[in-house]
Design a protein around this nucleic acid. Structure first.
Lengths: 180, 207
DNA sequence: GCTTTAAAAAGTAATGT
DNA sequence: ACATTACTTTGGAAAGC
């Protein structure tokens, strides 16, 4: 059995309009925060699905916190409808692009982080600063955080398939390290 | 011609001024931390290498100096924590850590994670503990390392717990508060590591 | 580089009972 | 001595400083 991979966060971007008046949007959407002095984007939190949306004057939108691309799509459709109902010009079916995904998994073994750091290129292990070992893979181009418990976090993902490939690579290199 | 000549003088002037500033900062911080001469010289070499490779661009001189000192301390096995160096310099720990990683990568400085044992002599002497306690603490840490009890934990916390245990075992007890103070960790951390070490290494600490 | 958003891992920290 | 909350690390986009 392969380790179970759980997607815990999906970051997506899209464009829902042009020259959006964020002051106006802030009044339309209830859980909206807009403080241009602090950040140029408007922050909107939804409870279902539980995500946070960043809306910019350019009409570009980021959605974070979703567990899948579909969930992010539902969230974006929701705010599009609300803005449309309020009379704001919006793009109805915008193209949605996955920018990043975060996944967790359990290797099922307790790796020796010191040995991995010593023998594997592209690793950083500074327990004084963080308990996990940072491993940057070239293909797929992702970053894996490996912990002494065997739990791992994979980020920088563009697809679930990459998570599987990354996990298999990690398991392979750890086995090699254990043998040497 | 003359312009080019003048520009060269200006550039070398600036470079000299920067180097002089960097070295004076290096002196100031290393003496503030009470670091031995060989560590200071090692840090100076690291800094010069960084300058030669043009690694200072986009970074503050002080940040690179602080990171060079941090790296030199570890390489010479007389580690200082990022917090200690951040306090002695006027650079925050985040930037020192980031710059250190950058220097390590670009200058091919390969350092293994700080060994908790390297902190023992300094912490023990600051606590006025005898050599026997130091040896006992080191022995505990060696066993702990073999059993993987140091992996992922902060080196200072594990070292502090080992010293605390050793001091109790050899009858020159220091309180958790005293040990926590010199190690720069909280008593909660010492307690957590203490539990782990005594349980997994079958150490009887009866008070 | 920074600012803001979300989420996980494990360790450490600050506060509170 | 506990618990709770919060911060460390990683990735990416957005617009502006």
């Amino acid at each position: 059995m392969e380790p179970e991979i759980k997607i815990v966060n999906v970051v997506v971007s899209t464009k829902i309009g042009d020259n959006i008046d964020l002051e106006e949007v802030a009044l339309i959407l209830e859980n909206a925060e807009y403080e241009p002095e602090q950040f140029p984007g408007l922050v909107c939190r939804l409870s279902v699905p539980k995500v946070a949306l960043l809306i910019f004057r350019s009409g570009k939108v980021n959605c974070t916190g979703a567990k899948s691309k579909e969930e992010a799509e539902i969230a974006i459709k929701k705010i599009i409808k609300e803005l449309k109902d309020a009379g704001i010009e919006v793009i109805e079916n915008p193209e949605i692009k996955i920018q990043n995904m975060v996944a967790t998994a359990d290797l099922g073994i307790e790796p020796n982080l010191d040995d991995i750091a010593l023998m594997v290129e592209g690793t950083e292990y500074e327990p004084e600063q963080f308990p996990g070992l940072v491993y940057r893979l070239d293909d797929p181009k992702v970053v894996v955080l490996i912990f002494g418990s065997g739990k791992v976090v994979i980020t920088g993902l563009k697809s679930e398939e990459d998570a599987k490939r990354a996990l298999n690579k990690i398991l392979e290199t750890i086995k090699e390290v254990q043998e040497l | 011609r003359l312009r080019k000549w003048q520009r060269r003088i200006r550039v070398s002037d600036a470079a000299e001024r920067n180097l002089a500033f960097a070295l004076s900062e290096l002196d100031r911080i290393t003496s503030k931390l009470g670091l031995p001469r060989h560590v200071r010289e090692n840090a100076a070499i690291i800094y010069r290498n960084a300058v030669e490779k043009g690694l200072i661009r986009g970074r503050s001189i002080e940040g690179v100096v602080a990171a060079a000192i941090y790296a030199a301390c570890r390489r010479c096995r007389v580690p200082r924590t990022l917090d200690e160096i951040a306090e002695a310099s006027r650079v925050d720990r985040k930037e020192i850590g980031r710059t250190y990683r950058f220097l390590a990568r670009e200058l091919n400085i390969k350092l293994t994670p700080t060994n908790p044992i390297d902190y023992v002599p300094r912490f023990a002497s600051e606590l006025g503990l005898p050599g026997e306690v130091e040896s006992k603490a080191i022995q505990i840490l060696q066993q702990a390392t073999e059993k993987g009890l140091t992996s992922g934990r902060g080196p200072t916390g594990v070292a502090a717990a080992a010293i605390y245990i050793a001091s109790v075992l050899l009858g020159c007890r220091r309180t958790q508060r005293e040990v926590a103070e010199v190690a720069g960790v909280t008593e909660v951390t010492i307690r957590n590591r203490y539990k782990e070490l005594t349980e997994h290494l079958d150490i009887d600490v009866t008070l």
